[in-house]
Design a protein around this nucleic acid. Structure first.
Lengths: 193, 193
DNA sequence: GTCTATATTTCGATAGAC
DNA sequence: GTCTATCGAAATATAGAC
């Protein structure tokens, strides 16, 4: 691996774990296993390196949402995506960054985060619209709102998991959301009879 | 106001805004308008001051959940609590702290956060159980799970609001959750007919 | 390209005057 | 109790050798 890549990977890791403020250039260098000169050769400083690292995290996040595009009944895809294994205690690679004060204050960095959510939310909206079209969800369903709700359950699940230092609250939150969706499903089925 | 209080208020403010790592004792002193000696007179250092400040934030959070205890139909209380005005861009006073690496790593600080959520979640569970008892929600509803789900929608709403630097995604997420609850309500009504 | 040495500033804490 | 002066360590960045 090239020094440049080692640096962005190390920075991405540390951003996810420790946040921007607590991640010093020195720690990045140590973890990457390169000298100080390499970093200032490729990047103008901590900020530029962080931007590159966030780009990497955002790309990974988008890749993970591909389940929503698969070829299966819409509600199945939704459940499957909701139930994907998630590291509740570490937090969402992208969502965590929104709560990082330095990231939030920086137009470029928060822009990358918003861009990642944009991609995922448009997939959510699409699959919900498909569920409505094939009668798996009530016709009155507002797909934009429901997409936000489901994305929020995941993001909020991470918050509760970290508060309790346990995966369980997050799993329960997700199970509760799936129950609500199933209730909506039977409602939709009843109204088409 | 006493110096001690000025210090804890300033620290609470800065913790909420900028997080633990980025909040230096000097900034706290400046904002509180006291000298350096005062801080080390009352507190052993930054950590002890932060613990005291988090205690303050946790108390404020718990106070805000009192709507759930009021005297009104359970689902009304739930909707009202969900629709309470919230500063999406600033984030939740308590939830934000779970994503702060230094807070998360500290037993005492994260314990205070978990304690605040405990109080709120038990209120959520109670009001949901009451809704089930009076037929406003289906009998099969798992109140623990639904409590986690609703708390997650709020916490996740803050995440989306900050990602987009807009209150709107949070409001939509909450509206979507209320729609799901209303669907469940009509389901419950139908099954008792 | 990659390294080490070093400069400058800020951090967190202590000392000691009043 | 509250203040200012100051310390030692770490953060961020630059200089310059190889």
């Amino acid at each position: 691996m090239r020094s440049r890549e080692k640096l962005t990977h190390a920075m991405a890791d540390l951003l996810w774990e420790d946040g921007y403020a607590a991640t010093s250039p020195k720690r990045v260098l140590t973890r990457a296993g390169v000298g100080q000169g390499s970093m200032y050769h490729y990047f103008s400083g901590k900020h530029e390196l962080a931007v590159e690292a966030i780009r990497e995290l955002a790309d990974q996040y988008v890749e993970n949402s591909s389940v929503l595009d698969e070829d299966a009944p819409p509600l199945d895809r939704i459940s499957r995506y909701l139930m994907q294994p998630r590291p509740g205690l570490r937090g969402c690679k992208v969502g965590r960054l929104t709560q990082d004060p330095q990231v939030f204050a920086d137009d470029e960095m928060i822009g990358l985060v918003a861009g990642a959510f944009d991609v995922a939310l448009s997939k959510w909206t699409k699959v919900i619209d498909e569920a409505i079209a094939c009668g798996e969800l009530p016709a009155e369903t507002n797909s934009t709102q429901l997409a936000m709700t489901l994305a929020s359950v995941l993001q909020g699940g991470y918050v509760l998991a970290r508060a309790y230092r346990s995966q369980k609250p997050m799993d329960e939150a997700i199970a509760g959301a799936i129950s609500l969706l199933n209730t909506a499903k039977s409602q939709a089925a009843a109204s088409t009879e």
